[in-house]
Amino acid sequence: MSPDDEGEPGTAETVAAAVRETRMTPSEAVAEMRIRLPDRGNRELRRALERANADAELKAWWHVANVNASARLGINDHSWVHVQIVANLALKLLRELVKHGVEPSLVRDYRLRAGDAEVVVVLAALTHCVGMSIHRKGHEDWSLFLAEPKLRELLDGVYEEPDRTVVVSEVLQAITSHRSDGEPLSIEAGILRVADALDMAKGRSRIPFERGRVSMHSLSAAAIEEVRIVDGVDKPVRVEVLMNNSSGIFQVDSLLRAKLLGSGLERHVEVVARIDTESEKKLVPEYRLEF
């Protein structure tokens, strides 16, 4: 994943830091958190992000979510690192779509700006799994419960009414739509749903894998080396998934496909997976999702 010029938030080092975080005190864990992404002069996005980075309560939710996910349940990372990766992926997806003439729903339905759509997808990424701080079961609903007042805090003075309520409502719609049976009603909600699924690189799977929970899910996730978002060939945007083993096809065909179908992005996004190694016999040189 390449979030423009901001470096790589999903490296092995940052994921390792997220694992260490579960053994820190809350104050220690929160002090290390800082979401970075390219605002490209979007004043509203920059102000909202500055407030999020200064919000100890929001960061505490990320910390507890990761304790529940990583330390207690032994599942994939749900720390601030996951949040940062999803935020950068969502922003990259939106900007690529806009570059190729796809109109965000906030522009189409409310005559707001593409920059406002950026605020929606980033805030949705920052709050989509805060409900994991309560419980994994039904965490999307818990996220809505926690996020609504927090979003109004983050946007106070950034947007006036009624625009602030529109932005908050669209973020909440994206949060509830990112679940497996969600029904995104906007481009922005579909982007969050897909971006969340694209955080599939092998670092995120290390917790269950190292604990001996070897399954098709953990094996396939460990096979994903990198996810790139680039200009498309047959469609406006291409998602390239680089694998070190053909078992990664399960991650792409079963899990990513499920999130793409019904996202509203099917006609805009193509997915190509490749095995990028000479150490395994290439049973298939390239694999494409077909819709």
Rank of each mutant, 00 (worst) to 15 (best):
T127N: 11
H128E: 01
H128A: 00
C129Y: 08
V130Y: 00
H135S: 15
H135A: 15
G138K: 09
H139T: 14
H139Y: 14
E140C: 10
W142L: 11
L144Y: 15
A147I: 01
A147Q: 05
P149K: 13
K150H: 12
E153K: 07
L155K: 03
G157Y: 01
V158M: 04
V158G: 02
R164P: 08
T165E: 15
V166E: 01
V167F: 01
V168P: 01
S169C: 06
V171L: 02
A174N: 00
A174T: 05
S177R: 00
R179S: 08
E183A: 09
I187V: 08
E188W: 00
G190S: 05
I191Q: 01
I191F: 07
R193T: 04
V194E: 00
V194G: 03
A197D: 11
A201Y: 10
A201C: 08
R204A: 13
S205M: 06
E210L: 03
E210Q: 06
E210S: 03
V214M: 09
E226L: 13
V233I: 12
D234R: 15
P236M: 04
E240D: 05
M243F: 06
M243I: 09
S247E: 12
G248M: 05
D253Y: 10
D253G: 10
L260N: 12
L261S: 14
